Computed example of a mutant assay.
Amino acid sequence: MHIPARLRFGLAIAAAALSLPACGSDNETLLTDAEYERQAVRDVKVFIQGNIDQFAAATAALQAAAPAPDADGWSATSDKEAVDAMKAEWKKARQAYESVEGAIAVVFPDLDYSTDARYDAFIEVEADEDLFDDEGVTGVHAIERILWADAIPESVVAFESALTNYREAAFPANEAEAASFKDELCARLAADAAKMKADFGPLGLDAPSAYRGVIASIAEQVEKTSKAATGEEESRYAQYTLADMRANVAAGVATYEAFQPWILTKGAEGAEADEAVLTGFDRLRSAYDGIDGDALPTRPEGWSDAEPTAEQLATPFGELFSLVEHESDDTTPGSLAYEMTRSADLLGIKALP
């Protein structure tokens, strides 16, 4: 993912600081810690706002692309062009959201739930008898489940069908269901995204939400691979979870680069932390980019997170799982999550509540 030039402004400031003489004593830097922090948070806010804007635009376009309701509803065969258009907009929305997931979960927890919670989380509370309305199961995964209703993997069906309150995924079968899908379910997601966009503008973002939110997102990478073993993964219907994870990492890099000039003012310890964090991101990015497509590798037969065999760990899924498990562990020195936490502590960025 290309990092917007505006996020490199902070790096330009650091370069200027190195090339200009310091004012006052030898120990005085060009910018204070507070100034570095403010600039980093401003850069991250611009990045987040840009992705929220893209999320809102894509969800509105998805709703607009939904077929006009007719007597037999619609399907991937009878309305292929419209369904393909909705799927394309869904993927745009997904990429934008996953690029800022860590911050959104912190600043908009209710909207994060209504837009991004998984099917099983919703139906744990109560049954959702209407797949297409704006109540019960909502958000990107509710729409994903309908758009890919004819291509859901067997492992996902096996997992979900065993849940209390399960209802089989389906395309709208009549005019009423098609109307509800377009005017209620899709409209609810577009409205939630529009509210997120409007509310974020005047919001005062802080360093813990901006930086530690990304650390939380990195720590969740292991959950995304673990749940793939049981059909519970996040973008399970479109088989798009690896694309989600790539977006998480690209966003993590963007956020880190906004804070990097400040970290590099912390002497040898800052330089060491910087190298460790960048190396960790490179390990994850290289592993993700080394896998073709948007889906996680197929898990080996009989896989167990707790006790995978050496043979299973040697598979593409096993290798990815091992790497992600390591990088997500904030208690293991050298892991990405550990080094990002260490860098946050070095800057004095408080932990999230």
Rank of each mutant, 00 (worst) to 15 (best):
A337Q: 04
E154S: 11
R188I: 01
L111W: 07
L347G: 00
Q221V: 10
D130Y: 04
L313K: 14
E220L: 09
L203A: 12
A198W: 04
A271C: 02
T332M: 12
S328Q: 02
E129R: 14
F317P: 12
T59G: 09
A310C: 03
P21I: 10
T32P: 01
E301H: 08
D53W: 03
T315P: 05
G10A: 15
E124S: 14
L189N: 02
A16I: 12
D128W: 03
R145K: 14
A295L: 03
A149W: 06
D33K: 13
E301Q: 13
N174L: 05
W303N: 12
P67M: 04
D79I: 05
D289C: 06
E129M: 11
A142L: 07
P333I: 11
M196Q: 11
E275M: 08
A61T: 07
F171Q: 00
T279D: 14
D130T: 06
A66M: 13
L203H: 10
E339M: 03
G204M: 10
V137H: 09
T77G: 05
E232H: 13
L20P: 00
M340P: 01
V100Q: 04
A176P: 00
E35P: 00
D294G: 00
E177Q: 14
E144F: 01
I349D: 02
T298N: 10
A247L: 09
P208W: 09
L347H: 05
K87S: 05
S217Y: 01
I13D: 07
A57N: 09
A273D: 11
I152N: 06
F171I: 02
A210D: 08
I104Y: 04
A22Y: 03
G139T: 08
F200C: 06
P69V: 06
T225R: 04
I123C: 02
A250P: 02
D329H: 04
A314L: 10
T309Q: 10
P208R: 12
A5C: 03
R6D: 12
A178C: 01
A5I: 12
E101G: 12
A344E: 08
A314D: 15
A191G: 13
R118V: 06
A258G: 03
V44W: 06
N165W: 08
W303G: 06
D183K: 13
T138M: 08
I13P: 00
E35L: 13
G50F: 10
L18N: 10
A40V: 04
Q54E: 13
R145E: 15
E184T: 11
A105L: 06
A34E: 15
T164H: 08
F47V: 11
P109Q: 09
T265A: 11
A238P: 02
G231E: 00
A193W: 06
Y113N: 03
Y240F: 14
I218W: 00
V41A: 00
P316T: 02
A187W: 00
Q63M: 15
